[in-house]
């Protein structure tokens, strides 16, 4: 078993090191998120009460699209340089290695987005009390998105320039996350209990954790044929 843990640790460590050597790719989704959330007050109205009303939607649509930008890179480089092939032939479980890869992807994209969301929310006139709820909902939402993205990115690997296909495939499946995530955020901002939508987000995360790595491994295997 220690071999599997060691392998997962190396997969994550490699991805983190690569990301820090190539920071542009890492910063791109974050920059996108920051730009979109700051453009809304400029385009809509600087009036805090109106901004507060649209804040959940703005935060969630921006986070969703920023995650989508990042999902394209989840397996692409590894598929091109033959690393995925080596993963599939490593004697380790491909499901497990892809799970580790998805985790490192979330650490590099979802987690920074979740940590940045309070700043964006503050810019939209949201009160400090809502911050825990916003961070929690974006954290759960981005974990679920990374897991979903692992499946759709795996499925579109075999397609040349599969970027558009990836969006078409991922966005409809991400709609439930958007609905419940935005609802959790709206409730947090209004000072209402957030447990209901948050439990549903957590349920999506559990569903993703159990099924997504298996589906991603199956999809990647097909793309390697």
């Amino acid at each position: 078993m220690s071999g599997a843990w060691q392998a997962a640790r190396l997969v994550i460590e490699r991805d983190l090191r690569l990301a820090f050597r190539n920071r542009a790719q890492l910063l791109h989704p974050l920059l996108f998120f920051a730009i979109v959330t700051t453009l809304f007050p400029l385009a809509l109205s600087p009036e805090p009460s109106r901004l507060r009303d649209v804040a959940p939607g703005v935060l969630w649509v921006a986070a969703l699209l920023a995650s989508l930008l990042a999902i394209e890179f989840l397996f692409r480089d590894d598929a091109q340089d033959g690393t995925l092939e080596q993963y599939a032939l490593s004697g380790q479980s491909l499901t497990w290695l892809l799970f580790a890869k998805t985790l490192s992807h979330w650490l590099l994209t979802g987690l920074p987005l979740a940590l940045m969301s309070p700043v964006a929310a503050y810019g939209l006139g949201v009160a400090v009390e809502a911050v825990p709820g916003i961070i929690a909902s974006i954290t759960l939402g981005t974990i679920a998105l990374s897991l979903l993205g692992a499946v759709t990115a795996g499925l579109t690997l075999g397609i040349r320039r599969g970027g558009a296909m990836l969006s078409l495939l991922t966005l409809p499946l991400a709609v439930p996350l958007l609905i419940f995530g935005a609802q959790a955020t709206a409730r947090a901002i209004a000072g209402e209990p957030v447990a209901g939508p948050m439990y549903l987000l957590a349920a999506f995360v559990v569903l993703g954790l159990t099924l997504a790595p298996l589906a991603a491994a199956a999809a990647v295997r097909i793309s390697l044929e």
Partner: peptide, 20 residues
């Protein structure tokens, strides 16, 4: 050659073979 352009040769092997 299944190598990462941003890693050194030694790092590539340490990660690539290390998972085996």
């Amino acid at each position: 050659s299944p190598l990462k352009a941003d890693l050194t040769a030694a790092e590539n092997l340490a990660f690539g073979i290390g998972i085996r």
